[in-house]
């Protein structure tokens, strides 16, 4: 087992037109911290340059998407600019103050269980639960061990989207330790709000109920979206997670779930949040040691 994060060469990014008013850049077909940190660094630079005609700048896991006004900017000129920008970016020099957020999860909860049973016909393995199936195909002997692995190392927010506030997180471990599962064969038309799911190599928390294709692992009592901005941690934005934040999934029991939920509904819950100056190079070298430092910033 390796103890460091293998660096990935992003050899051939793809620059694609999205109709006449979007440019989509796929830095890599596969997920890696290299691809994600580059997407974050480039999009941050684009924002700072404040190019005329740019309407939306949206970083994603291993890609990014720009929406622009074609009356002001020709997509080919934009693509030239993006290629030049890429030459200037060195992600090991790209550091940021990362928030570390304690993220309680009731795994194998009754609500997502009920929903998943309604949609077995859209699943690869209708005879197992999503957790049983995911544990098995990832080589775990039991669901319990699998949950330990999922909650055993922190995860970085590598994308926010799908619906407002939904974080995609990527576990901060070497690739061979990462969990990988398929999405549903056909997306469900229903997912409970605050469901914690997994698809590809990502954990996602659904902010509101709706459609979804991720394997369902549990439910969190805390919110990632607070439209009315009532909870104290949502004062500046209706959305909790930002790319570059670190979520520490923590396994809780029903009693703690109910207690936290009560505080959230009363509008008094305060998230346990610490900060760390995140340095990619130090993380790449010794992820296990770095993760210990990360979890230490939570009281």
């Amino acid at each position: 087992m390796t103890n460091s994060i293998q660096r990935q060469e992003l050899s051939s990014p793809r620059y694609e037109y999205g109709g006449d008013d979007h440019v989509f850049v796929e830095l890599s077909e596969e997920m890696s911290f290299d691809a994600n940190f580059e997407a974050q660094a480039i999009t941050q630079e684009i924002r700072e340059r404040d190019l005329p005609g740019i309407i939306e700048v949206a970083p994603a896991n291993a890609s990014y998407l720009l929406h622009f006004d074609p009356g002001e900017l020709h997509p080919d000129d934009l693509i030239e600019e993006l290629k030049a920008l890429r030459e200037e970016i060195d992600i090991t020099e790209y550091t940021w103050e990362a928030r570390v957020i304690d993220f309680p999860v009731l795994y194998d909860d009754p609500w997502t269980h009920e929903v998943m049973m309604k949609f077995r016909d859209r699943h690869q393995d209708p005879d197992s639960t999503d957790l049983e199936y995911s544990a098995r195909i990832n080589g775990f002997d039991s669901v319990d061990e699998f949950i330990d692995a999922h909650s055993g190392a922190p995860q970085m927010v590598t994308m926010v989207g799908f619906v407002p506030g939904l974080p995609w997180t990527f576990q901060m471990v070497p690739r061979e330790q990462q969990i990988e599962v398929p999405k549903y064969v056909q997306p469900r038309t229903e997912t409970p709000g605050r469901a914690v799911g997994y698809g590809g190599a990502f954990t996602a928390t659904y902010p509101v109920k709706g459609a979804g294709g991720y394997q369902l692992f549990g439910r969190t009592p805390v919110e990632v979206l607070d439209v009315d901005q009532e909870l104290p941690d949502f004062q500046d934005s209706m959305v909790l997670p930002n790319p570059g934040d670190i979520l520490n999934y923590r396994r809780i029991d029903r009693e703690e779930y109910d207690a936290i939920r009560e505080e959230v509904e009363a509008g008094t819950y305060e998230y346990n949040i610490g900060t760390i100056d995140f340095r990619p190079e130090e993380f790449f070298e010794d992820p296990q040691g770095y993760n210990e430092r990360i979890t230490e910033v939570l009281d």
Partner: peptide, 12 residues
């Protein structure tokens, strides 16, 4: 890596 096994799946 990260896309999931279905041929229509991509890294999100």
């Amino acid at each position: 890596f990260g896309a999931g096994p279905d041929p229509t799946n991509v890294v999100d």
